[in-house]
Amino acid sequence: MVGSPEKTQVEPRTVVQVLPWVTTACRLGLAGVLIWAGAAKIGAPALSVQAVEAYELLPEKAAEIVGYVLPVSEIVLGVLLVVGLLTRITAVASGLLMALFVAGIASAWARGLNIDCGCFGGGGQLAPGESPEYLQEILRDLGYIALAAWIVWRAPGRLALDTVLGLAAKRDTGGEEDVNDDDEERH
């Protein structure tokens, strides 16, 4: 009983002001993970390739290419999210990437492989006695997908180049006049 009437009285204006900042926080969170993951893998291309090969999903050549391209892509996506450029497209791409990781890990799990996901460097076969942590890895990636989904829904958030460059659709910037604009057009 207590408190519930207050909740319903939250000012719409406050929500409107806070939501874009939530998006910004999601962008920075997801970007941090992507940049960290990319940086951990980019140091030694051979190890990055090996981590991909350990999944035994791709032919040798394809695994090699993924091993080179993936860390670079993660860093580029991360940087785009930080500056808020092409926010929605970048968030979609990041979410799809995470979904691929989930699929890869789930497949490794289903086939009974004994590997490290190699998400943040390392990767490859686990030493005998070490056990894989597929469930945690999948849950973690699902969390990142949730961040990406929020960003797609509420792009681009505050402090975004998209806004500066006029790339954000008007309704996404969260101003009041825009609503009036729409009304006027429809009248």
Partner: peptide, 24 residues
């Protein structure tokens, strides 16, 4: 603007992937 940025991002990824290939 959007297609230029997408293109730039793809080119950047391609170039640095080549660097990775060369380092290996």
């Amino acid at each position: 603007v959007v297609s230029s940025v997408v293109l730039a991002a793809v080119v950047l990824v391609g170039l640095f992937s080549l660097v990775q290939y060369n380092r290996n």
